[in-house]
Amino acid sequence: MTTETISIPETGTATDPGADALEATRHALVAQLAGLSAQEQIAHLVDLVAAQAETARTEQNPDETFDDELDGDSPFFEVGFNSLSAVELRNRLVEATGLTLSPMLLFDYPTPTYVAEFLQEQLAAEGGA
């Protein structure tokens, strides 16, 4: 786990008025996380991932009742995810973070905590931390 925290990047030029929605989303998330410690950032991102995962899981399986509650250590593919819901979650996380994420995200990072740590590293790298 990285110990870097996310900070708002310093820019020498005005922002492009035509900045796309993903960039605006990423900047907003970086601003939310900027004042938090590394552990608080991870906790915030775990909550984000778990909420998006719960939505993706129930949307892909609307007739199924899940006994397992999603938490930071829940392996996605042991709590009702399949390849379709994995891609749906990845798409939701792209929209929620503004990051470009691999369709293989959940295969590479199989729990909400692992995904959150990866997102924190990506946001810290892009945020100039």
Results as ranks from 00 to 15, higher is better:
61 N>T: 07
40 E>A: 15
52 Q>V: 08
62 P>Q: 06
41 Q>G: 12
54 E>D: 15
34 A>G: 03
45 L>I: 05
61 N>M: 08
62 P>L: 07
60 Q>D: 05
36 L>E: 08
49 V>Y: 13
50 A>L: 09
40 E>F: 10
54 E>Y: 14
49 V>L: 04
60 Q>E: 03
61 N>F: 10
53 A>Q: 01
61 N>A: 13
65 T>A: 11
33 L>G: 00
34 A>Q: 02
47 D>P: 03
58 T>I: 12
54 E>P: 14
38 A>S: 14
48 L>F: 08
34 A>Y: 08
53 A>G: 07
41 Q>Y: 06
39 Q>V: 12
50 A>R: 13
42 I>A: 12
56 A>T: 04
48 L>Q: 11
44 H>R: 15
57 R>L: 07
54 E>S: 14
52 Q>N: 11
46 V>Y: 09
56 A>Y: 05
36 L>K: 15
55 T>N: 07
46 V>I: 13
52 Q>L: 09
50 A>G: 01
47 D>I: 02
58 T>Q: 13
34 A>C: 09
46 V>C: 04
45 L>F: 05
60 Q>P: 02
63 D>L: 06
52 Q>F: 02
35 G>F: 06
37 S>T: 15
63 D>P: 00
60 Q>G: 08
32 Q>F: 01
39 Q>H: 12
32 Q>N: 14
49 V>T: 09
40 E>K: 14
61 N>C: 06
42 I>Y: 01
57 R>A: 02
58 T>H: 13
55 T>Y: 06
64 E>C: 03
34 A>M: 00
42 I>R: 15
52 Q>C: 09
43 A>M: 07
42 I>H: 05
57 R>C: 03
48 L>I: 07
41 Q>N: 08
47 D>N: 15
43 A>G: 05
45 L>N: 02
48 L>Y: 10
47 D>G: 15
